[in-house]
Simulated assay, not measured.
Amino acid sequence: MTALELDQILTLDWPPLVRKVMAGGADDWTKSFVLSIARNGKRLNWHPSPKQASLMRRLVADHKGTAGGEIEVIDE
């Protein structure tokens, strides 16, 4: 995972994902993982392991897939 990709995920994608996981019926392991990444992401030189990066990408993709559904166009 590049530094840019990590920054984008932690800044744009991770906060709403944390809120969704903590509010929803996610299992304890997922809650723990999401909070761990949020906490470690604040460390200056932290980078996820390849396995963590893969899980992060999958969680973000799953979240984006269920986040909004279709876009509604509003006419004025």
Results as ranks from 00 to 15, higher is better:
residue 1 M to N: 06
residue 2 T to R: 04
residue 2 T to S: 09
residue 2 T to M: 02
residue 3 A to F: 06
residue 3 A to N: 12
residue 3 A to P: 04
residue 3 A to Q: 11
residue 3 A to K: 13
residue 4 L to K: 14
residue 4 L to Y: 09
residue 5 E to C: 11
residue 5 E to T: 10
residue 7 D to C: 10
residue 8 Q to I: 15
residue 9 I to D: 02
residue 9 I to L: 13
residue 9 I to G: 01
residue 12 L to G: 15
residue 12 L to C: 15
residue 13 D to K: 11
residue 13 D to M: 15
residue 14 W to H: 09
residue 15 P to R: 12
residue 15 P to K: 09
residue 15 P to T: 07
residue 16 P to W: 14
residue 16 P to S: 14
residue 17 L to K: 06
residue 17 L to Y: 05
residue 18 V to L: 12
residue 18 V to K: 13
residue 19 R to A: 15
residue 20 K to G: 13
residue 20 K to M: 14
residue 20 K to L: 14
residue 21 V to G: 07
residue 21 V to R: 07
residue 24 G to Q: 05
residue 26 A to E: 01
residue 26 A to D: 05
residue 26 A to K: 04
residue 26 A to R: 01
residue 26 A to T: 02
residue 26 A to I: 04
residue 27 D to C: 10
residue 27 D to V: 08
residue 27 D to R: 09
residue 27 D to Q: 09
residue 27 D to Y: 03
residue 28 D to M: 10
residue 28 D to S: 12
residue 28 D to C: 03
residue 29 W to P: 04
residue 30 T to P: 05
residue 30 T to K: 03
residue 31 K to L: 05
residue 32 S to I: 03
residue 32 S to C: 03
residue 32 S to R: 06
residue 33 F to S: 04
residue 34 V to P: 00
residue 35 L to T: 03
residue 36 S to K: 09
residue 37 I to R: 06
residue 37 I to H: 02
residue 39 R to H: 09
residue 39 R to C: 07
residue 41 G to A: 05
residue 42 K to H: 03
residue 44 L to Y: 06
residue 44 L to A: 13
residue 46 W to P: 08
residue 46 W to L: 15
residue 46 W to Y: 12
residue 47 H to M: 12
residue 48 P to G: 03
residue 49 S to T: 15
residue 50 P to C: 04
residue 50 P to Q: 11
residue 51 K to I: 12
residue 52 Q to Y: 01
residue 52 Q to R: 01
residue 52 Q to H: 06
residue 52 Q to I: 07
residue 53 A to I: 06
residue 53 A to P: 02
residue 53 A to K: 02
residue 53 A to T: 07
residue 53 A to H: 05
residue 54 S to L: 06
residue 55 L to W: 11
residue 55 L to F: 10
residue 56 M to T: 02
residue 57 R to I: 02
residue 58 R to N: 08
residue 58 R to Y: 06
residue 58 R to Q: 07
residue 60 V to W: 02
residue 60 V to Y: 00
residue 61 A to I: 01
residue 61 A to F: 01
residue 62 D to Y: 00
residue 63 H to W: 07
residue 65 G to A: 04
residue 65 G to H: 00
residue 66 T to R: 08
residue 68 G to K: 03
residue 69 G to L: 06
residue 69 G to M: 03
residue 70 E to N: 03
residue 70 E to T: 09
residue 70 E to H: 07
residue 71 I to M: 13
residue 71 I to W: 11
residue 72 E to P: 00
residue 72 E to Y: 03
residue 74 I to V: 08
residue 74 I to P: 01
residue 75 D to G: 02
residue 75 D to V: 10
residue 75 D to F: 05
residue 75 D to R: 09
residue 76 E to K: 03
